[in-house]
Design a protein around this nucleic acid. Structure first.
Length: 704
RNA sequence: UGGGGAUUGGUGUAACGGUAGCACGAGUGACUCUGACUCACUUAGUCUAGGUUCGAAUCCUAGAUCCCCAGCCA
């Protein structure tokens, strides 16, 4: 394979594009990381170095162990992706994953998957499994046994007890209090930018607050009766600091902790501690949390009041290096806890799509799409099913870069990155979407079905090593309806009455006559072929030395050997550049023609042969079965861990996710859909069109 | 109205007081057994107004525009 050239064996990051693009300058976050990694005034990197305690499986064999050993003594870089399991991941999340996992890979750090499950009302098990599966597909391995940069899977709910202790600590330090206001009252008393908020219970005695907090925890009070609030600044122009709620009462069943808790921490209270406990160094989030950073800092600082130890100590880790408080030290709450640095970056929006979980939920529930993984959905699962490659999505976000500038990116940029990848990799095959029958009247008759020749075709012109295949050719063929025009405009150089074209790899044919049905529609073309053009070669020069030329080469399928398949064609889900801009409701801009199903496309037989061959030796049949992804929302009963994706070689190309992909010549890139059933007596093939090829003719035709 | 961010060709991004560059797109042409790919050329930008400086996208002042914040969501 030509792309097997030596490609940067030093990094363990998932390698993407086959050819190396010019090196990008480091983005602003990488610049921060690199500055942190340089020795500071103390001679050590800002976040210290990896030790046997936190470097990962240093004694394990294999790549994960190798990476862990290589990490020892090197500057710590520890990132995380913290989704709430309340929906499927979308293309925007992929940016965060690419960034966070990419940072860990680039600096041989570690990357955690952490479920931010602090709100039992909205979270479901199904989403947990879907998110894990999406991360694995994207190449962000979180399992420390297999992923070189994996830090593990964590749950905010595992930290509830620790967070609760810190909450009591803040009360005792006079920095939090139990408030009896209702949600409505708090809202009314919030004030305005100029007018401070008011809160009647701020000066509740510490012991009262402690008692009430414990009663809240122990289920003595109904939902909404009390909250725990931080005592910060009711007049702050930053509303987040106007005594934010830390805990609310909720007698709800949590998907992880069941009925153990009836108070749940608010995101703001929980998030900084989650990073702290896990020893996250760079806590990367989106711009809207910039206003919250002072709050997170205040929480950690408040816990650290009266504590001792180095500034970069991490909770939950060995405190051996913590200097013991001296005899004259004030009462200590324990060693100081770790304080991650939050860095905010801008989300990237794409034209013609939206990333709103609320809208996704509606589309799925109302049946406007065929599930979370509908190939039209901007979910990671949707892109996967559509046939996008994880490498293309990663490369796209890397090319777009990371900044603090809000951007609206042309969707075509994502599509172009995808085409780049697919062009270099996909095997070529021929398929006809809308068959038009062609009979070659001067082609020899060799029996009931005519004579059959086997023509040789190149599998991928971009990749000579992909080799050749043969395709049967006969007297009766199908060509694409769009490749014939009875009354063509000047610039149309495909087939027309009297015109001559090449059939790829086979012969040149000339259209002699047109057969029509009663309605006047063309049903068949009667053509002749030139035996001197075998293999598609030009015929020898004529008597005057002139060589005949054709301008078009068409794809075709032998009617006697064609394999029928269902093909699903997609147009954009929304037909407005910014859905919802017009009316405020994105659903108003839904494209009613976003899905077109071709029930009986005709494919060259090599496709079925490839797939049967793969099915016979496949260990990972996810892409060949319809049960691979839950088709609708709603909880599933299965608690099974999503299996890692096993690479599979299909038609000579190895796909990390085992999804068979092709370029059907001149039509675009296609991926096998899980609705496919190869085990049926008559195999059922279903393909999704991932993307079209660029089409100069369509552009011209549109111009008129 | 208060606070927090942002602003460089059509799009995305770089330049960190010293030649405004890169990628994608678009246009033109070449090549072509995919109207694909590839190749060549072209196109077009520092939000505005002042100031500092030998020199400003970069520093200062004033303004404009856009995004975020008054959930017991995250």
């Amino acid at each position: 394979m030509p792309d097997a050239k030596p490609s940067n064996p030093s990094t363990s990051a998932p390698q993407s594009s086959p050819d190396a693009s010019p090196p990008r300058p480091p983005n602003f976050i990488e610049q921060i990381v690199e500055a942190d990694n340089r020795p500071g005034p103390s001679g050590a990197p800002r976040w210290g170095v990896w030790t046997r305690d936190d470097a990962g499986p240093v004694d394990a064999p294999g790549p994960a162990g190798d990476a862990a050993r290589a990490r020892l003594g090197k500057p710590r870089v520890h990132t995380r992706f913290p989704p709430e399991p309340n929906g499927y991941l979308h293309i925007g999340h992929a940016k965060s994953i690419t960034l966070n996992h990419g940072l860990a890979a680039k600096y041989n750090g570690r990357f955690n998957l952490r479920f931010d499950d602090t709100n039992p009302a909205k979270e479901e098990r199904e989403f947990v499994e879907a998110i894990k599966s999406d991360l694995l597909w994207l190449g962000a391995d979180f399992n420390p046994e297999t992923g070189a940069n994996a830090g593990g899977v964590f749950w905010a709910s595992d930290y509830f007890a620790q967070m609760y202790e810190w909450a009591e600590e803040l009360v005792r330090k006079g920095r939090a209090y139990v408030c009896s206001l209702t949600a409505d009252e708090v809202s009314k008393r919030r004030g305005t930018p100029q007018v401070p908020a008011t809160s009647p219970d701020r000066d509740r005695p510490i012991e009262d607050s402690i008692r009430l907090l414990r009663e809240m925890r122990d289920g003595k009070h109904p939902d909404g009766a009390y909250t725990l609030r931080a005592k910060i600044d009711l007049a702050s122009p930053n509303f987040n600091l106007r005594d934010p709620v830390l805990y609310r009462i909720s007698h709800a069943e949590h998907h992880n902790t069941g009925r153990k808790w009836c108070i749940y921490p608010m995101y703001d209270w929980a998030h900084g501690f989650e990073d702290s406990i896990e020893g996250i160094t760079h806590s990367i989030c989106t711009l809207e949390f910039e206003n919250h950073r002072p709050l997170y800092d205040w929480f950690i600082d408040s816990v650290n009041v009266g504590r001792h130890g180095g500034p970069a100590l991490r909770a939950g880790l060995s405190t051996a290096s913590t200097p013991a408080p001296g005899p004259d030290a004030p009462p200590s709450w324990g060693p100081r806890i770790h304080h991650a640095q939050q860095i905010e970056f801008a989300k990237g929006s794409l034209t013609y799509l939206v990333t709103s979980k609320r809208l996704f939920l509606r589309l799925v529930r109302e049946g406007l799409v065929r599930g979370w993984d509908d190939p039209r959905m901007p979910t990671v699962a949707g892109f996967r099913r559509r046939g996008y490659t994880a490498a293309a999505i990663r490369d796209f976000w890397t090319e777009v870069g990371v900044t603090k500038t809000e951007s609206l990116i042309d969707y075509s940029r994502l599509e172009n990155t995808l085409r780049d990848h697919l062009n270099k990799q996909t095997p070529r095959r021929m398929g006809v979407l809308r068959p038009l029958k062609v009979t070659i009247e001067n082609y020899p008759d060799g029996g009931p079905e005519g004579k059959t020749e086997h023509v040789e075709l190149v599998n991928n012109p971009e990749n000579p090593a992909a080799g050749m295949r043969t395709a049967p050719f006969g007297r009766t063929l199908y060509i694409e309806r769009d490749d014939f025009m009875e009354d063509p405009p000047k610039k149309f150089f495909r087939l027309a009455p009297g015109a001559e074209v090449r059939l790829r790899g086979a012969y040149w044919i000339r259209c002699e006559r047109v057969v029509k049905d009663a309605a006047g529609d063309v049903t068949e073309l009667i053509c002749t072929y030139d035996p001197q053009t075998a293999g598609g070669e030009s015929p020898p020069p004529d008597a005057e030395g002139k060589v005949r030329k054709v301008k078009a080469t068409l794809h075709w399928v032998s009617a006697a050997h064609a394999v029928p398949a269902e093909v699903r064609l997609f147009d954009r889900l929304f037909n407005a550049e910014e859905p919802g801009k017009r009316t405020g409701e994105p659903a108003d801009d839904l494209n009613p023609n976003s899905l077109e199903i071709i029930e009986r496309a005709m494919l060259e037989p090599a496709v079925l042969e490839d797939l049967l061959d793969y099915a016979a030796r496949a260990t990972d049949l996810r892409s060949l079965r319809s049960k691979s992804v839950p088709p609708t929302d709603g909880p599933t009963s299965s608690d099974a861990e999503p299996a890692p994706f096993n690479p599979a070689t299909i038609a000579g190309i190895t796909w990390p996710d085992a999804i068979p992909r092709y370029q059907f010549e001149r039509l675009g890139y296609f991926a096998l859909d899980p609705d496919t059933d190869l085990a049926a007596p008559t195999p059922r093939l279903v393909f999704n069109r991932t993307a079209t090829l660029k089409d100069e003719w369509a552009k011209q035709a549109a111009k008129g």
